[in-house]
């Protein structure tokens, strides 16, 4: 009976993942390897191609600017018109930063819907659901991001664009420091060769984590976490019979992800303090008093 239970859970979580995420690893790999009938993504490798992408992929590269205050959801600032080339470059970097934010907001929304579909999640105290999302979404986001990355770049705009690693690295500090650690993580993580069914369970395990600060009912979250982690362990044994150490290796990645999120939160804080840019209210909520 236990085996049957875990198979049902695996199926439910995999289905929730396939239903709620616009991009998945199978889709991303088809695009990245050119094995798809859809047009090849637009390669973004400099400011010129970035601006071309902004015009042609406008629908999925929304670069809104967000008000700083909590009450200002949806308020827009208008950048002053500038002629100076350096300022134009700075504006483009800020717009790129906002594109990243829009993608993050979209993924957080998808992750919330995914979490709600994980059996047991919605039975938790509402405060605990908030806590689990607050601390889990960025770890989950960087896990999903790895699916869209190869050693040379990252798929963006729902597969319509491919932004090169070198271009991202060439941006002015602190923007240029933002993505490199994610590429390094992705290279190591992608070497595990997980598929979407494995990733679905891993992302569910990230979100349903019993040691997040401030949980009201730790034992209930731990019970949920235990059932997901057991399902993940059994699923990996069945799905990757030749790789018996995959489960412990995957669990080690949780520590890497936590470190990646801490570094990322510090960079975002630095950008918020020193740059003339703003943060989406949802992301403000997540980062506030995080670590």
């Amino acid at each position: 009976p236990m085996e049957a239970d875990h198979k049902i859970l695996v199926k439910q979580i995999h289905e929730a993942y396939m239903k709620n995420f616009n991009m998945n690893k199978a889709k991303a790999r088809l695009i990245l390897t050119g094995k798809t009938s859809t047009p090849q993504p637009l390669i973004i490798h400099d400011m010129e191609t970035f601006q071309l992408a902004e015009r042609t992929l406008a629908v999925h590269m929304v670069s809104g600017d967000y008000a700083e205050s909590d009450g200002g959801v949806g308020d827009r600032q208008v950048f002053p018109a500038v002629a100076c080339e350096e300022l134009e470059q700075r504006e483009a970097e800020a717009r790129l930063f906002h594109c990243c934010q829009s993608t993050s907001v979209e993924t957080v929304t998808e992750l919330t819907e995914f979490a709600k579909a994980v059996p047991g999640f919605q039975s938790l105290d509402l405060n605990d659901q908030v806590t689990l999302l607050k601390y889990g979404v960025y770890e989950a986001l960087f896990t999903l991001l790895a699916s869209c990355m190869n050693k040379d770049g990252l798929l963006v705009a729902r597969g319509g664009g491919f932004i090169t690693r070198e271009f991202l690295k060439s941006l002015r500090r602190p923007f240029g420091d933002m993505m490199e650690p994610k590429f390094q993580f992705a290279t190591r993580f992608n070497a595990l060769e997980l598929d979407d069914s494995d990733l679905a369970l891993f992302v569910a395990a990230i979100i349903c984590c019993g040691d997040r600060p401030g949980l009201v009912d730790v034992s209930l979250v731990e019970q949920l976490q235990e059932s997901i982690v057991q399902a993940l362990r059994l699923h990996l044994l069945a799905n990757h019979p030749d790789d018996t150490f995959l489960f412990p290796r995957l669990l080690q990645k949780l520590a890497d992800l936590r470190e990646l999120v801490t570094e990322h939160a510090q960079l975002v804080q630095e950008i918020k303090t020193n740059e003339d840019t703003s943060l989406h209210p949802l992301l403000q909520e997540i980062y506030r008093d995080m670590y």
Partner: peptide
Amino acid sequence: LKEKHKILHQLLQNSTSPVDL
């Protein structure tokens, strides 16, 4: 927690996209 995480609460209770807010 609810006061500090209004949008997360809203997302948990319905599926309004924060992009559209």
